[in-house]
């Protein structure tokens, strides 16, 4: 399991209901079931990964964040997790809204487009930045909605979501030491991780 998945798992209370959107090979839900006793389920777009997960006994269904969340009833889960995918969905604002409708909490991670390397590359080369995190050229990237940590916080403010925890981490998922300052985190964090809840939830 990736280190940032470990950080996500630490945000989740034991024996809760969890929906992991983009569950990949299922390692997070497997971990949540085995070590935290959670009722953890997954949605995954890649059919090979779905088959692999189900063949490992994990409750995973084929589907995607943009189209399949609308069917779930309100408050069906305690946590709805979206890992490194928000920037790639068709409608990030709606996906976030659905996550906080069907779950009490949303856990969202995304690559931070405010990272200093990206800023410098764009400034000096005048071309779309390519880094270890943003490694696909503009014409074939799935990341159609890049945002920075500050952009994301602004959306949370607009839509009335409460940020319970946030952290900036580097690509390997090590927690980075910029917890006090959002501006510094936005400059030095490669990946951002947020635990949100709805106002009044």
């Amino acid at each position: 399991m990736r280190l940032d998945q470990r950080l996500i798992a630490q945000m989740i209370e034991p024996r809760t209901r969890v929906l992991d959107i983009g569950s990949g090979d299922g390692s997070l839900i497997d971990h949540l079931f085995r070590s935290r006793g959670c009722d953890a389920r997954g949605i995954e777009l890649n059919m090979q990964l779905v088959t692999r997960s189900v063949a490992h006994g994990l409750p995973v269904m084929h589907g995607d964040a943009d189209h399949d969340l609308a069917h779930y009833p309100d408050h069906a889960f305690d946590y709805v997790v979206l890992q490194r995918t928000l920037q790639a969905v068709e409608n990030p604002r709606e996906v976030l809204r659905q996550m906080l409708r069907i779950g009490r909490h949303a856990i969202v991670s995304f690559p931070n487009f405010g990272h200093w390397q990206l800023r410098l590359k764009l400034l000096f080369s005048g071309r779309m930045p390519m880094t270890a995190v943003w490694h696909t050229p503009w014409y074939e990237t799935p990341n159609i909605h890049p945002c920075t940590i500050r952009d994301f916080l602004e959306l949370c403010r607009q839509d009335g979501y409460i940020v319970e925890q946030w952290m900036a981490v580097d690509e390997e998922g090590e927690r980075a030491p910029w917890r006090r300052s959002i501006r510094l985190a936005n400059l030095f964090g490669e990946q951002a991780l947020f635990l949100l809840r709805r106002r009044g939830a």
Binding site: D39, R41, M61, Y72, P73
Partner: peptide, 12 residues
């Protein structure tokens, strides 16, 4: 899903 049932789904 509307019933929040525990579901796996695979298309072979």
């Amino acid at each position: 899903n509307q019933a929040a049932a525990n579901v796996s789904f695979v298309e072979i």
